[in-house]
């Protein structure tokens, strides 16, 4: 067993590359999904029923479809419509599209529970439209959203492992190729699992730090 782990140590650069890809895909994907989700929350909260119906339809659809299924649709399906991505980009697109729906639903939920009075005060002071949303509503939503966004980020980190199936060189893919080369599946996958664990711990520490900042304003 010690020999196995020393073999892994020798291929540490490959695992590290995988880890970096996992982190990059997760962070970039989560950041884009959060930004787009915030935009998508606006029609979800709109008074126009058509806007609401269309945006709700997209969100509910994404919540019914497994992430891998959406990845396949992006990777194999979109080229049929003339949109061709390399594996990495296809993976990122799938993460962003899928999680935009989840982020939007998180934001909508908090937004709808926000105190109406602070929004009304802003209206009385002449805020309206995008500026009302961006200056008064979304900052308050983000202040409360830390733990839920953290949970979603953990979900995204875990979902990136699916991308091994379309050969994106992320952590699980790297681990799988190392174990296939040296036939040391136990040591490699355990190492990978521990790395995922560490990543999720980092996210939880981050959420804790953000909560301390938010706490001062509650």
């Amino acid at each position: 067993m010690m020999r196995d782990f020393s073999l892994i140590w020798q291929s540490a650069d490959r695992l590290l590359d995988g880890l970096i890809n996992t982190v990059l895909l997760s962070l970039v994907g989560a950041a884009l999904a959060l930004a787009l989700g915030a935009l998508l929350a606006i029609p979800l909260m709109a008074s126009n029923p058509v806007l609401r119906l269309v945006s709700r339809g997209f969100v509910d659809l994404m919540r019914c479809v497994p992430f891998l299924m959406l990845t396949y649709l992006v990777y194999y399906g979109l080229p049929r419509l003339g949109l061709r991505f390399d594996n990495w980009t296809a993976g990122l697109v799938a993460i962003v599209v899928y999680n935009t729906a989840y982020m939007a639903e998180i934001i909508r939920g908090i937004w709808s529970r926000l105190e109406r009075e602070t929004i009304e005060a802003a209206v009385a002071f002449g805020f309206h439209g995008w500026r009302l949303v961006s200056r008064i509503i979304l900052p308050q939503v983000m202040l409360a959203a830390g733990p839920m966004i953290g949970n979603q980020l953990i979900q995204i980190i875990k979902d990136t492992a699916f991308l091994t199936i379309i050969a994106v060189p992320e952590l699980t893919h790297a681990a799988n190729s190392i174990q296939a080369q040296y036939f040391i599946p136990f040591a490699t996958f355990i190492t990978a699992v521990l790395m995922y664990w560490a990543l999720c711990m980092v996210v939880e520490v981050g959420v804790y730090a953000v909560e301390r900042i938010a706490e001062r304003r509650r």
Binding site: T118, E120, A121, A122, V123, A124, G126, H128, L143, R217
Partner: peptide, 29 residues
Amino acid sequence: ARLRMRMGTVFQHFNLWPHLTVLQNIIEA
């Protein structure tokens, strides 16, 4: 909004914006 910004409203329950400091609340609008 153009007319509302010519009035200043003080609310029963203050309705300060919780994400902004005292100074930021005042300069926001």
